[in-house]
Design a binder for these strands. Structure first.
Lengths: 223, 223
DNA sequence: TTTATCTGATCCAATATTGAGCCATTAGTA
DNA sequence: TACTAATGGCTCAATATTGGATCAGATAAA
């Protein structure tokens, strides 16, 4: 059994906060109390609370206590929280807006080294033997295309989507929809995208990506 | 029974990871624990985990533990943190991808009541006397269009952009670029978008929105 | 046999937790 | 005002946890 460490405690605290605990006066219990409640040294609890402080969930005042912040970081976290609840259908719709554009940007902006990284991800995915490995390098292929889009904001949106796709409702869906035949279709579609990137052809990169995403959408959600 | 070798264990681990195990705080158990759980020597488990590390599925830190890369709690916060640092230019580029689509969706999906809300925001913005009031209802106009796009994920991305636009670099920029003449241009462009929405014309709603965003981009960032 | 792998064990280096104590600031009270 | 209790900020030494690395022997497959 792994030991309960500060980061674990931090996520436990976040869970309790987002479940509405302590919201009444916005104040969370003293470190000493929390420490004894969790059966952990005060120093460890301090580190845990520091995580919350770092991401803006909480502010601390000497002599007064530790308080939930009602401002920006919280609303940001709320957005992310609601995103976790959005449907795969909605996200696939947005992917079809963003990823073709990313591919188009990549075709014009990518360095040779970055394109090599894309090609490498494609190669490993093609040669992978089991589904989890394929999944991983499939995701990596898409990620690396965003990475050479030269738009930081776009990259971060994709990071968000990637994290969300690694959670609850997607798991089942991906597992259900996977098959050897579909894998090989995905590979050849990836190849088409890669070819367009290597030809530095933004328009066909975009089209190839869109075609691929439509296939994925069909497989994941039916038509 | 065939002997459990490192690569078998690696795929078993991957399966457990992709089934959602350990995603909660992104930490997987210590090698020693996993080894005893799988009934295997620690060296073997180390080799197994090394496969995951090569994959990029996981990163290891001496003294801390082994962590999932794709989905750990910190990575979500990190994404949001990095977004705060992205440039207005990058974000404007993405707005031009998303908002025309949102307008298009709105034209086909909005209810009459929702369109009234959009019109109302436009009216108050047009009649506003001072810049902060105009800013507020301008933002509200865009927000309400997203609100009737019927895509929850898209709405949340816009919420994110809205929060970011209320922070540091944007404030100065908006103040600098504001003028009475530009305000009236924005208003007539909004009017064009609104008209297209009321005509239930997705194509021209999209085009009108794109035209508007290009104006905003030019005013904010120069050409 | 040869080769590769697993086992069991030991030590090392990096990091975390513990438990204790003291300080500075704040709030409440006599 | 002055005192007290509560609270977060901080340090320190001792201990524990964890991944990194190596080695000799056992086992199994080519």
């Amino acid at each position: 059994m792994p030991k309960l460490v500060a980061s674990d405690i931090a996520t436990a605290l976040k869970k309790r906060i987002s479940s509405g605990e302590w919201i009444e006066n916005g104040r969370i219990p003293p470190e000493r109390d929390l420490a004894s409640e969790f059966g952990v040294a005060r120093n460890t609890m301090r580190r845990a609370v520091s995580f919350l402080e770092d991401d803006g969930t909480v502010v601390r005042h000497v002599g007064r206590g530790t308080f939930l912040t009602a401002t920006n970081p919280a609303s940001m976290a709320a957005v992310v929280g609601r995103m976790e609840g959005t449907s795969p259908a909605d996200m696939m719709e947005i992917r079809q807006l963003l990823e073709p554009a990313a591919a188009s940007f990549a075709a014009t902006n990518a360095s040779a080294m970055e394109l090599n990284a894309v090609r490498e991800a494609h190669r490993i995915a093609s040669e992978s033997q089991d589904m989890p490995t394929f999944e991983h390098w499939d995701a990596e292929f898409h990620h690396r295309i965003f990475a050479c889009s030269r738009n930081e904001f776009l990259k971060e949106i994709h990071n968000l989507m990637r994290i969300l796709r690694n959670q609850a409702p997607w798991f089942e869906m991906k597992k259900r929809s996977f098959s050897e035949e579909r894998r090989s279709i995905y590979c050849s579609e990836h190849q088409a995208v890669l070819d367009a990137l290597l030809r530095r052809d933004p328009e066909s990169a975009s089209q190839a990506m869109l075609a691929h995403l439509k296939t994925v959408q069909r497989n994941l959600l039916g038509r």
